[in-house]
Simulated scan of single mutants.
Amino acid sequence: MLEPDSRDQGRKHLAEALRELRKAAGLSGERLAARAAMSQSKVSRIESGKVLPTVVDVERIVTALGVPSEVATELLSLARAANVDYASWRSYARVGLWRKQAELKALAASSATVRQFLPVIPSGLIQAPDYARAVLTPAVEGNPARNIERAVKARLDSQEVLEDESRRFHFLLTEQAISWQRAEPGVMASQLRHMAGLLDRQNLDLSIIPGGVTVRASPLNVFVVYDDRLVIVELFSGEVALRDPQDVSYHLNLFDYFRERAVSGDDARQILETAADQFMRARD
């Protein structure tokens, strides 16, 4: 993964290399655009570094320029690296984790459709206050300290985006995600009933993959897809942002695969209520 400085340098190098290759080929921006089936303005923005080209964009350009295969391979590698951003939780903690919550709210507010795949934990957008407080409290050595109350407030504030009925939210959980005990039983029961209360929202689809269903794909990571333009994948140490259309398309296909094996509506409500009752019995 690339830290910010090296990532920005990689983008600059890619833009400069594409511009120099075009000049070496004796082509104008207009001629290259015609050969690559792009607009001249897009070629110009790519070469100036104002627009980050996708791997497909670079492939079309190097094909149009007829560059040697070894050069094309290097440029495609640069493009793949430039289209992946990595940010560690440590870097977020340095500036305040609450700022990350504001960023997530802005991302959701700028998207018509948000799809969240949640194999191990409910989304911050559907967390009740006490549950959010529990999951935002560091539990493992090396997990950066944070202002917990400020982070909780920012997380709850971010949930305002759900009130915008012009946007569509899909929350896809595994049964493990609702049964993994991240807090004391009473808090867990309240969280599950909070989610059950969201099932009637018209702009929200909350579905659960039951434990007894055969699922041949592995639920490796939490990921969020914003429209068809961006994927955020969560890791233990941070998160990766993917912008390449092929990566986005793959995650949309993954989401659809898992969603086809999930239940929603009254069936999801039954799973949530049953799990909530089990936690309440454990409390007693």
Rank of each mutant, 00 (worst) to 15 (best):
M188I: 02
L230H: 03
Q176R: 11
A33I: 07
V240A: 08
E163M: 11
W180Y: 13
D85N: 13
Q159F: 00
K100G: 05
L78I: 14
Y250P: 15
S6P: 15
L118Y: 00
V120M: 10
D200R: 01
F258N: 06
K12T: 14
A275Y: 13
R155Q: 08
S41Q: 15
D5M: 09
V51Q: 09
S207F: 07
S237L: 03
K50Q: 08
L162T: 01
A24N: 02
P185V: 00
P138W: 06
P185H: 04
L76R: 04
R45S: 11
A79N: 11
V233Q: 02
Q202R: 14
S218E: 12
R11Q: 13
V231R: 00
G212S: 05
R31P: 09
Y257A: 06
A241I: 04
V95H: 12
A24Y: 04
R19W: 08
R229Q: 02
D8M: 12
H13E: 15
A275E: 05
V114C: 04
A109E: 01
V62I: 13
R35P: 07
P185N: 09
L118C: 07
L65S: 14
K105P: 00
L254A: 00
I148H: 12
D130F: 02
R80T: 15
L173T: 01
R243S: 04
P138A: 12
L235A: 13
R146H: 11
A196M: 01
R243I: 00
G26L: 03
L199Y: 02
E160M: 03
F236V: 07
L136K: 12
N83G: 03
A268G: 00
Q9P: 08
R60K: 08
